[in-house]
Amino acid sequence: MAARTEPSARASGDAPARRRPPAPPARQSAARPPLLRELLLVAGLFLVYKSGRLLANGHTGEAFRNARHVWDWERFLHLPGEGLVQSLLLNGDGLGDWLVRTANTYYAAVHFPATVAFLVWLYLRRPAHYVWARRTLAAVTAAALVLHLAFPLAPPRMLGEPGLVDTGQVYGPTVYGAAPAADTMANQFAAMPSLHFGWALMVAIGLIAATRSRLRWLWLLHPLLTLLVIVGTANHYWLDSLVASALLGLALAALRWAWPTASGAGRARRSVPSDRVALAGAGR
């Protein structure tokens, strides 16, 4: 009888408990890339993009022909007219010109600083997420540059459609010159895709992936507000944002191998209960 009870005693925990092998280190704790290298890399990518956009400038006739095509495609797809959103900005009850000027300011001042702040925060707090986000943004921007060169597109504010005005020029502030051909700072015929929306959507996705707060889904308000602003100011078509979303989806799929894994803290929280069980079994 004693020989029979011995295995059961061991099974009940008298034998030393087997400890699970330590979990592999989370990629969240990956080494932070060298700061100088990242600054040079990001600055170089930005300069290449700006230079490439300017190469597409000057294709006035083609840009306006493409604009008519996009406008017709949107009507064929039964998308709402861009003037619908703009009318809400221009006819805000009791708000006067404040609403449309706020939209112009958002378009001019939030797009680039918000993306830079996003990358800086990831670099300091989430290095693995930073590398993933930087690669994704670079891929989307490169694809957008190719499309800007291949498909110059005049924005809806230039079409002269009834109900559409250039809110930047009329109400201010604006980031564009009055004459597109004479604008040496930006290519006004690079409407598709909208990097305003594509970058905003990536910022929201990156912050949702890198944080654990229950309120993190509110970051989606950034691309939603950006969409209303770019359409309401007549700087972009609805299709510009749809194409930007498609490019971002392709970039995320192509860089799936670079996706950050769960954070180290999350893994630690999941491993603590099993470690406690093992230690408790060893002490019995």
Results as ranks from 00 to 15, higher is better:
3 A>S: 13
5 T>E: 07
16 P>S: 00
19 R>D: 01
22 P>D: 04
23 A>K: 09
30 A>N: 03
31 A>Y: 02
33 P>N: 02
35 L>K: 04
40 L>C: 07
41 L>V: 09
44 G>I: 12
45 L>T: 11
45 L>R: 14
48 V>H: 06
49 Y>K: 10
59 H>C: 01
59 H>A: 11
65 R>I: 11
67 A>P: 05
70 V>A: 04
73 W>G: 00
82 E>F: 06
82 E>W: 05
86 Q>R: 08
87 S>C: 01
88 L>S: 06
92 G>C: 10
92 G>P: 02
94 G>E: 05
95 L>H: 10
104 N>K: 10
107 Y>K: 11
109 A>H: 12
111 H>M: 10
116 V>A: 14
116 V>L: 15
130 Y>K: 10
132 W>P: 02
135 R>K: 12
135 R>L: 10
142 A>K: 10
144 A>Q: 04
148 H>Y: 14
150 A>D: 00
156 P>N: 07
156 P>D: 02
160 G>P: 08
161 E>R: 15
166 D>H: 14
168 G>N: 10
169 Q>P: 02
171 Y>Q: 07
171 Y>G: 02
181 A>V: 14
190 A>E: 01
193 P>Q: 07
194 S>H: 05
201 L>N: 04
204 A>Y: 04
204 A>C: 03
212 R>T: 15
215 L>A: 13
223 P>L: 05
223 P>Q: 02
228 L>H: 06
230 I>A: 02
232 G>M: 05
235 N>W: 11
238 W>L: 11
240 D>T: 10
254 A>Q: 10
256 R>C: 04
266 G>N: 10
272 V>L: 15
273 P>K: 13
276 R>I: 15
